[in-house]
Amino acid sequence: MKHSRLPLITLILVLVFFYLPIIVLVANSFNASRFGGTWEGFSLVWYKRLLHERDIWRALENTLIIAVGATVVSAVLGTTAAFALHRFASRIQKVHYVLIYTPLVVPEILMGMSLLLLFVAMKIQLGLFTIFLAHVTFCISYVAMVVLARLQDFDFSVIEAAQDLGASWWTAATRVLLPLLFPGIAAGALLAFTLSLDDFVITFFVAGPGSTTLPIRIYSMIKHGSPPLINALSTILLLVTFAAVWFSQRLTEEKS
């Protein structure tokens, strides 16, 4: 049977399309040229320049505080949500499922705008805390979906086995269930961490004075700043992302 070559060609073109801009960006971050149109030799000058940008360091600090906080809280809330969705089939869980699922498709701008209005209406000062609240809100759904997918493949008979062998309910949950599910929870948390690290739109809406995060800083650099510095900063962020994806993939592979 003769197979059409079209799908393979499309796949290759799509991959080139995905990675060409990223490769050009990374290459340009090592380019001595200021404008990046031509190659003027390998240089680390932009990375050195980054070290002296105090604003970027402060933004990085804010970003990490929010990302760590949002990851921890959303990992807990997302995991309990996934358990509830998996374990129970009541009407409440149907509503719960819609609540978890909808934030995944709602455009970010709507979430940012509605949270801004909530904070303004409640007279809550905009700042790191409001960004943290917003990030937990969208991260819960991603963690819940990742953990739920793991739960669906999970063999619950091992829990029954543990209980038959005399383990209390609590022991079975903490000594058998959680360790086995840990890779799934960690993968969800890792996704939450990168999403929080990278989020711009929602953050931009609920940020206040003095709570600039790295993506907000990058945005204002794209608007007014020097491109080579953004290239260098982006390359570093890309490395962090690649490491996170690789690590998360390993976490999920070991199980299967």
């Binding site: 991959l15 801009p21 960006l25 990168t194 990278d198 794209i222 290239n231 890309l238 994806v245 993939q249």
Partner: peptide, 21 residues
């Protein structure tokens, strides 16, 4: 993995990459 990586990457960076291109 190759399809998921762009999904995890900061989308400001991906837009900026195109602006440069």
């Amino acid at each position: 993995l190759l399809v998921i990586i762009p999904f995890w990457t900061c989308f400001l960076i991906r837009i900026f990459a195109w602006k440069v291109l």
